[in-house]
Every structure is written in C-alpha cells, then in structure tokens.
C-alpha cells in the first residue's frame, strides 16, 4: 500500500515547493526589472536583499520600531540605495560595454557585503517571525504557514508591479525607455528618471525578498548568495520576462522540493539546476524570453 502514501507525499511536497517558488520568483523579478529597464544584470541584487534585511533588523529589533514603520523605513532606505547606485555607479558607466557595467555590479556587491560586515558584524542575527506560523490543513496535506504567507506576499508584490508596468503611464514610459532610450528621449521621456525608478524598484523587491528569506532562516552578510542561485531561475524564465520569472520560480521551487522528498536533501541544489541546464539547451532564450522580432 506504499503507492497511496507516495501520492500524498508527492502532493504535499509539490504544493510546498510551488509555494516556496514564490519567493524565488520575487527575487527573480528584481533581476528582470533591472535587465528590462537598463540591460544590466545586477549581480549586487543579493546584497540589496541582505542590506534590506539588515536595515529592517536595525529598525525593528535594534530601534524597536513597530514592524510597519520598520518596513517603511527599510523600503525608503533601499530605494535611496538604488537611486544612489544608479547615479554614481551606472550613470558614469553609460555607454561603456555591458561587461564593464556587469563587473561594476559585482564589485558593488562585494563593497556592500564588506560594509554590512563592518557595520553589523559577521555573526548570525535573527529577525522576529513576521509571518504567522499557523499551518493550513488541506485534507491530509499540511502547508506550513510561513511558506503560505511568503507566497501570498510575493504574489501580491509581483501582481502590483505587473499592473504598474502594464497600465500606469510611468510604467509604459519605463518600458519604452528600456526598448529604445534614444527614441524615448526624443518623445520627451526623461530616461535618467525612468532608470533611477527601475533601480529603486529593484531595491524594493530585493529588500522584501531579503526580509522574507531572513525571517524564515537567519540573517548574515552571506544572505545574498541566495540570489546567485536565483539567477539560474531568471535565465530559465527569460531575462526580460516577468511572466517567465514567475513560472520559472515556481518550477525551480517545485523541483527543489521534490528533489528533497525523493532524492535527498544533498541533491537539493543540484537536480533543479541540471533540469534548468537541459531546458536551456532546448530553449536558449528561456521559457518566455523575447526573441527579437524578426521582420521577413
């Protein structure tokens, strides 16, 4: 009768996996936003997450502010960080080869990592549990509360950004500036402003993801390394597709969870990325990445 038990296990791990994919999708969104907006892969995104989580810790634990005030301060802080990065790192490099800019973001990541260690120390800190732990029972399936709530939060944030880009005038301008900056200038779009906004949004999504990850695990300067794994998710989804980031986040979450269930915890970081590699060999643009529109 082991067959019946396996089905239940499969269903439970699948659901947990899909739900935990929400946070991966949120981190992936941070990469996609910046790539769409400025054609730069932001290797410092993990450090944005880490800095966001530390800012939240400082406000919420160290200064003992209520969580909503701490969150507001944190988001303002990372938005300012994003704007500063755009002004003092990206803008001076405008017009340089993409590889130089990517190297600069890697350097920026290292600087932020070092600064965080200097300010907050290298030890593990813990954030208070923000998300309710109360699990949800679906028949025989038990879904942990944190996983459920982090998923809901990620979905809400992703939905908000998608709506913003689709329907708001600034969102449309940002997409226009991303697709052809010179023409966007000629249409009266302040391209510097749209790029600054892009980096601020990336900071905000990164910080929220960072706070979620830190509250479920622990907070240390190496929190940012999560983001590198997510880069594979982003490439799977297609670097410039928000929908792709979501689907790929869910796929990788699912694969991770199933690997833990049926192969073992050690393979958790291996199997999903092997699958990603294979998918990319078949679809090099990612699942949803745009091929350039070819006119025949």
């Amino acid at each position: 009768m082991s067959g019946a038990i396996d089905w239940l296990l499969l269903a439970e791990f699948s659901l947990v996996g899909l739900l935990s994919g929400g946070v991966l999708a949120l981190i992936a969104l941070g990469f996609v936003l910046v790539y769409k907006g400025t054609r730069v892969i932001n290797f410092a995104l993990g450090e944005f997450m880490m800095v966001g989580a530390y800012l939240f810790w400082t406000a919420n634990v160290f200064l003992a502010l209520p969580w909503w005030a701490a969150l507001a301060l944190t988001l303002a802080g990372v938005a300012a960080l994003g704007a500063l990065v755009e002004r003092f790192v990206l803008r001076p490099l405008a017009g340089q080869p993409v590889i130089s800019i990517v190297m600069a973001t890697i350097g920026l990541g290292a600087v932020l990592h070092g600064l965080a260690e200097a300010v907050w120390g290298g030890a593990n800190l813990s954030l208070p549990e923000l998300l309710p732990r109360k699990p949800l029972l679906l028949g025989e399936i038990l879904l942990p509360g944190q996983v459920l709530w982090s998923f809901a939060l990620a979905v809400a944030l992703i939905a908000a950004f998608t709506a913003y880009f689709r329907w708001s005038k600034d969102g449309v301008s940002m997409r226009a500036a991303a697709s052809d900056p010179v023409t966007a200038y000629a249409m009266g779009i302040d391209v510097r402003r749209t790029q600054r906004l892009t980096w601020m949004f990336a900071g905000v999504t990164g910080a929220v993801a960072g706070i979620i990850v830190a509250s479920m695990t622990s907070l240390s300067p190496s929190l940012g390394t999560v983001a590198l794994g997510v880069l594979a998710v982003v490439i799977l989804g297609g670097l410039d597709s928000i929908a792709g980031a979501i689907v790929a986040g869910l796929i990788v979450g699912l694969l991770e969870s199933l690997t833990v269930a049926f192969v073992g915890g050690q393979a958790r970081d291996l199997v999903p990325y092997l699958v990603v590699l294979v998918i990319l060999m078949v679809r090099p643009y990612g699942l949803f990445g745009t091929r350039d529109i070819e006119r025949l």
């Binding site: 301008s173 226009a176 697709s179 966007a184 779009i189 745009t290």
Partner: peptide, 15 residues
Amino acid sequence: FEDLTVQENLVAAAN
C-alpha cells in the same frame, strides 16, 4: 517601440 502596443507607443509619446 516594438514590444509596446500601438496605443502604448502613443501613451509613451504623451510624455
């Protein structure tokens, strides 16, 4: 702007 719709192109131009 190729990956924007016709209407969105006009909205962008309204800047």
